[in-house]
């Protein structure tokens, strides 16, 4: 029986099948190698993408927060219809609200001047330092869409600064426009 069993040791295999198998092995190994290289790089790519995403989120967050960009004042949502202006030396109050119907405030409805004011506000840039002015004006802007904006405006070293009342973000106006605006404010106040 041993001889008969040994007969089963060799099973005929065609040389073409043997060669074809070897080619397929080569191909599969090469493919596996490529996948291995790719899978090794995946953590690197994922880390890079995650870093980029986190960085983008931080930038966007800072952008929304108003920090770390060119920082123009947010574009006004509508045309300025009127500007109610009053002198004020305090940060803690806002005169046009309190004295709306008293005599020491002034109203401007001069379209040309209001457009210039709109442009000044829109083009103003945020500043990190917050210079305090002695002569401060409160300015209530009534917009066409019935919204209103409360600004505190002051001059420091010939530069015009403003901020929204009760907000700590200070903006510096463009010099060319600020001179005309300040002249207009003076005229409005003096006229009253």
């Amino acid at each position: 029986m041993d001889d008969a069993l040994k007969e089963l040791d060799s099973i005929h295999r065609k040389i073409t099948a043997k060669n074809k198998s070897f080619q397929q092995i080569e191909s599969k190994l090469a493919h596996n190698n490529q996948q291995k290289i790719i899978s090794k790089r995946i953590p690197y790519y994922m880390t890079s993408v995650a870093t980029l995403l986190i960085f983008s989120c931080l930038v966007l967050w800072k952008w929304d927060d108003g920090i770390g960009r060119a920082d123009n004042y947010p574009v006004l949502s509508s045309t300025i219809m009127e500007a109610i202006i009053a002198t004020n030396h305090s940060y803690d109050s806002f005169q046009p609200i309190e004295y709306m119907y008293k005599k020491d405030y002034a109203i401007s409805s001069n379209n040309e001047w209001l457009e210039l004011l709109h442009s000044l506000i829109t083009n103003a840039e945020r500043v990190e330092e917050q210079p305090i002015g002695k002569n401060m004006y409160d300015c209530l802007l009534l917009l066409e869409n019935n919204e209103n904006i409360k600004l505190k405006i002051w001059i420091e070293d010939n530069d015009l600064y403003f901020m929204e009342w009760n907000k700590k973000i200070v903006y510096k106006a463009n010099n060319a426009e600020s001179e005309q605006i300040m002249a207009g404010i003076q005229r409005i106040i003096e006229k009253e």
């Binding site: 060799s10 099973i11 295999r13 070897f22 090469a30």
Partner: peptide, 22 residues
């Protein structure tokens, strides 16, 4: 193809028929 390809080819040549029959 892959690293050590020549050596692997020799191993395949020598043993693959016996592995196939097994």
């Amino acid at each position: 193809m892959v690293d050590g390809g020549e050596e692997f080819s020799q191993v395949y040549d020598e043993y693959s028929d016996r592995i196939f029959s097994y």
